[in-house]
Design a binder for these strands. Structure first.
Lengths: 161, 161
DNA sequence: TGATAATATTTTAAATGTAAAATATATTAT
DNA sequence: ATAATATATTTTACATTTAAAATATTATCA
């Protein structure tokens, strides 16, 4: 009887654990985001979504379509349209047509966009390193692994149910 | 000479590690958020910020001021104003004046708000448990600990510099 | 006291975000 | 070939969010 109660309360505890875990994850992300957003604004008069879009283009040297950008950035297509239009107006990214498919095109960094991004990215990385610095290398590795497990857990749980 | 190179490249690797860690953290959070937002919409015609605000009121039975809500939720004051106004109109939260300070007031759940929240919270927790289920209990505990370390690292790095 | 500073909230303007409808092009099946 | 379906993007309408200015109230202090 005690055993039964124990296994039940274990389940309860696990439930709360997952919820607490989720709330802590959210808190951590929000804290880091807030710092980066503030510093991007103060130092470069720029914003996270702009930086994120440029970073995706840098990370994928073959250029990206709007749809690819949308799914990489995990935001809606309409959102990407707005950002690209803005950045194109500033000469930081370019749209280049494809012969094979006239519905789509590729977005890429212009030379000016590359320089612009590099300048910000260097500082941005320093900020991130700084924010994570109190964690040891090994703990960072462990966190990497555990987050990978979480990512896979979420994918598992949402796979075509 | 090799030793020197090694220690230098180690630093480089650590830098990239922190950045990759941040990107993975962001990805995980966005994935979970996307699922929860979608389900809240489909099932309850509600949204995450609304739920989050109600959850804060539930978690802090003594009522909260706008400023406390703002810092707990890590969003701007103006944002809280909008949410509370909306939820008050729906009869889910109430504003009660203080005699001591007429600049501020306390926000609390109405009985109706409590019922409303309970109904959603139960399902919400189930969703979270589901999403994290593939991770073992021990791995969840470990993630909790590592995220706590990260939280402290960020606080350390941003403490009145 | 009365001026100044600090605090709490709201308002405003602009950026960012979503969802759904609209448009344009490509693919498939009959 | 044509119709139906699928894909890629944009547009539209609207909700959310932030930062900064505005407002209102309280606290400090010369």
């Amino acid at each position: 009887m005690n055993a039964r109660l124990d296994s039940e309360s274990r389940i309860q505890e696990d439930d709360h654990l997952a919820l607490k875990l989720w709330l802590r994850l959210l808190t951590c992300t929000n804290m880091v985001e807030a710092v980066l957003r503030q510093r991007l604004r103060d130092t470069f008069q720029s914003t996270l979504p702009r930086f994120d879009l440029l970073a995706q283009l840098e990370r994928h040297p073959h250029k990206l379509t709007m749809g690819e950008l949308s799914s990489l950035m995990m935001v809606s297509g309409g959102n990407v349209t707005g950002l690209v239009t803005q950045l194109e107006k500033e000469g930081l990214v370019s749209r280049t047509a494809l012969e094979t498919d006239r519905r789509t095109y590729q977005v890429g960094l212009t030379p000016r966009g590359q320089k612009y991004f590099q300048r910000i990215a260097e500082q941005h990385e320093q900020w991130v390193v700084e924010l994570f610095a109190e964690m040891g290398h090994q703990q960072q590795e462990q966190l990497m692994d555990d987050l990978l497990a979480l990512k896979q857990s979420v994918q598992q749980a949402t796979a075509t149910l």
